[in-house]
Amino acid sequence: MQRDVTSRIVLNITEPADLVFAIGVSEHYAPTAESFTATLDGTAVTHTELSDVHGTRLHRVESGTGELVVEYSAQIEGAGAAIETADIDLLTYTRPSRYAESDALAPTAAAEFAGIDDPAQLLASVSSWVGTHLSYVPGSSLPTDGATRTLLARQGVCRDYAHLCVALLRSLGVPARLVAVYAPGLDPMDFHAVAEAWIEGAWRVVDATTLAPRSTLVRIATGRDAADTAFLNVMSGRADLVEVQVTATVDALPNDDLDQLVSIG
């Protein structure tokens, strides 16, 4: 399987800014071709690359004022390496977090999924429940919305669906986390967010939006919730987002059997 991904982000920097981008594919892949560039009013800007504990690659750019254009591309052949998981990771991803308030949603999870003991069935049930209880409405949520507010609003976008899945699964004692991905087949194309749950000794994808085949997803960032996986963090200064363009293609777009357990490869 060959996957090609690109992203282009244009920012208007009105005060010198320290910016961190999470748009490169995870270090668990070995791209056959890859490029990251940043230009300010047409002049190249240097960047620093950092990695976190889960292999998320962060590109840090310190920019002066003007129009900053950041572009990334990669070509990937085959699957990425498996991500090592320690006991502390499973503990971390069973606790509540900023956007996945599993403690607040515990009564809802207990009422809706009582009696489901099979882990694979539980995963499918949570995904189906979230998918049928929410409406996908672009622009309907705020960047600060968490799972509880999403459930009350009954609508959201991919990150909201993922946060609600993560919170419900954690409420049921299942370690769950958020993953930012490139998603071949997604329409309209954009950065995408899905959940991962620790089922039968591996991380399994949960995408209640069903907007892209799970087997084609390309991991970018992994963390507790959107606070760990945003494609851009403005650490200081001021940067106004002007444009985001994302593409993700695969040589053959497969069907997605929702009854099967799938891991991001």
Rank of each mutant, 00 (worst) to 15 (best):
M1Y: 00
V10E: 11
N12I: 01
P16D: 10
D18F: 07
I23E: 10
V25A: 15
E34H: 07
F36Y: 14
A38V: 13
A38Q: 11
T39P: 00
L40V: 12
V45E: 06
L50Q: 12
V53A: 15
H54P: 01
R60A: 06
R60Y: 15
L68E: 00
L68V: 06
E71C: 10
Y72R: 04
A79I: 00
I83S: 15
E84L: 08
R95G: 03
E101F: 08
S102C: 14
A109R: 02
F113W: 13
A114H: 10
P119W: 09
P119M: 07
S125R: 08
W129A: 10
H133P: 05
L134I: 07
P138M: 09
G146I: 08
T148C: 08
L152M: 05
A153N: 14
R154D: 02
R159K: 10
R170K: 09
L172G: 02
R177V: 08
V179D: 06
V179Q: 12
V179S: 10
G185Y: 02
P188S: 03
E196F: 04
R214V: 10
T216A: 12
L217D: 12
R219F: 01
I220S: 03
A221R: 08
A221S: 15
T222C: 10
T229C: 14
S236K: 02
V242Q: 06
E243M: 07
Q245M: 07
Q245I: 12
D251Y: 01
A252P: 00
P254M: 15
Q260D: 15
